[in-house]
């Protein structure tokens, strides 16, 4: 199912498909979040924003507004 990353709940997974914002895409890439690889939402902050995400050994926080630009296909 194609959704944006902000739609995932805690512990849900997906594959990174496309990041519309080129700067964000490059930044994610350099932080180890690679197109075609698995991404999961590890934790959502108590106030629903930001979120902690992982891909492989990479573990970072990003804001909801950025997560909305990351398109993924959800893995059930």
């Amino acid at each position: 199912m194609e959704v944006t990353l902000d739609n995932l709940k805690e512990k849900e997974k997906g594959i990174i498909r496309q990041i519309k914002d080129e700067n964000l895409a490059l930044q994610m890439l350099t932080m180890g979040f690679i197109l075609g690889e698995e991404i999961s939402v590890e934790r959502i902050a108590p106030l629903k924003d930001p979120i902690l995400i992982t891909s492989g050994t990479n573990y970072i926080s990003i804001r909801k507004s950025d997560a909305q630009k990351i398109e993924i296909s959800k893995i059930n």
């Binding site: 994610m28 573990y59 926080s61």
Partner: peptide, 11 residues
Amino acid sequence: EKSSFMLEMPI
């Protein structure tokens, strides 16, 4: 300028 909070969570 866009504001973001991309921060690595070290182990």
